[in-house]
Simulated scan of single mutants.
Amino acid sequence: MTVLPARPSIIHSSLLGIAQIIAWGGSFYLTAVLAAAVVHDTGWAQSWVYGSLSVGILISGLLAPAVGKLITRFGGRPMLLASSPILAIGLLLLAIAPNLPCFVGAWLIIGTGMAAGLYDPLFATLGQRYGKNARGAITQVTLVSGFCTSITWPLVALLVEHLGWRGACLAYSAMLMLLVLPIYLFTLPPQAIKAPTTEAAGVPTEEQHLPAPQGRVYWLMTASFILAAVIMTAISVQLISLLQARGATLVTALAIAALIGPSQVGARVVEVLFARKAHPIWSMLGSTAMVAIGLIMIMAEPGLAVLGMILYGTGSGIRSIVRGTLPLALFGAKVYPLVLGRVARPTLIGQALTPIVGGLIQQHFGATVTFAVLVALALSNIVLVALLRREVAR
């Protein structure tokens, strides 16, 4: 049996962050840059090309609970190791897709790889291995991976320019096998996993200890994560068009949107330096408040959009840490993978539906109403987190 250190080294955490940049760039963030080239080259319907990402996210959400159970039973290393070839195969199929049905079908494979290899499986693995000491590792991973869009989108654009969209998919497929897979092999040594004990009825003890569906802490946390993910997805997909609809030029909208990445990274630095010993519920409360205030400023006054976007990005950056650290603090390392898997399903389904619903709201009611809906969701999330904090205090 391999003796594991109390916490992963900074080098290991940084390498895991790099692996996440590549994995997210080859899945969740790929369509934003690739879609225009695909539509131009093939003539396929733009709605289906963009909608294929929703298919992938939906599959990821449906598989998330099963992934959590597998990690609980066998550890996260096999799941993360499997995610690289699954994503690579999906991108290979994407590159050679002769028609739209095959293109959408490739996203079913990519969605499976997303379920096995993005934040939630990695956080579950770290929580299972290092217990309460995983918080620092999760923060360090998100600190590095906070540069994802800043690196991924220019890289994909460069690959598309020189290799075409099919060549870009092949290049990313190679990176997943040649870079991400070796990183997981190096940073995640084999770990002996104690088999779950069973009761007379044959039900795993971990399942019995998982919070019941009526548990207020569990459901308040899940609802808050869903709202936060829906807001993040809507901003990621619609921000530039919303700002333009309210009078900003494309250059101005891009400049404002570019503030999100540095703000997220700055928030994670603050978390590393000052908030490591505080309960994650306080980080969550601060995150939801900053997101709400930032969106209100953007909606209310164009001149406050820059400051509003910095506040939003800071809150969003803290949220990505809290989604890993709060369930660990509330429910413990033993059932942590199961909790993450259960929470991930409704969260990812909400994210999959967001581009469709958000697009319809913007199309029929305009940018101001769309921002108002996002603000309402953000304010509702503050209420949910306040109720959750009260339950935690009990």
Rank of each mutant, 00 (worst) to 15 (best):
P190G: 02
G136I: 06
A174I: 12
E207N: 12
L159Y: 03
A157S: 13
L158E: 03
I183C: 13
L170K: 01
E206C: 04
L163R: 09
A195G: 04
P204C: 11
E199T: 14
L163S: 11
T149S: 14
Q140R: 13
T198L: 15
T152M: 10
V141I: 15
I183S: 10
V141A: 04
A192P: 00
L155K: 09
A137E: 08
T152I: 15
L181V: 07
E207C: 08
T149C: 11
Y184I: 11
S150Y: 13
M175F: 10
T142Y: 02
L181N: 09
A168K: 06
L176I: 08
R166G: 11
P154W: 08
L155T: 15
L170I: 12
L179R: 08
P190W: 04
Q214S: 12
P189I: 02
K194G: 01
F147R: 00
V144K: 04
L179M: 10
R135H: 02
P189F: 03
Q214T: 06
F186R: 07
V203S: 00
V141Y: 02
Q140W: 12
A157K: 01
S150H: 05
N133I: 01
T198G: 00
Q140M: 06
S145P: 00
I193W: 04
Q140C: 09
A171Q: 08
L170F: 06
V144P: 02
H162Y: 12
G164L: 04
P190F: 02
H162W: 14
L179Q: 03
G167Y: 12
L159Q: 06
V144H: 05
A195Q: 09
Q208P: 02
E161K: 11
V203D: 00
Q191R: 08
L188M: 06
R135Q: 06
T149N: 12
L188C: 10
P189Q: 03
I193K: 01
P213V: 13
Q191S: 08
G202E: 15
G202C: 14
L159S: 11
G164W: 08
A174R: 05
W153I: 06
F147A: 15
V203I: 15
V160F: 07
W153A: 13
G167Q: 12
L188Q: 07
L143D: 01
R135N: 09
A201W: 05
N133Y: 05
S173P: 04
P204H: 13
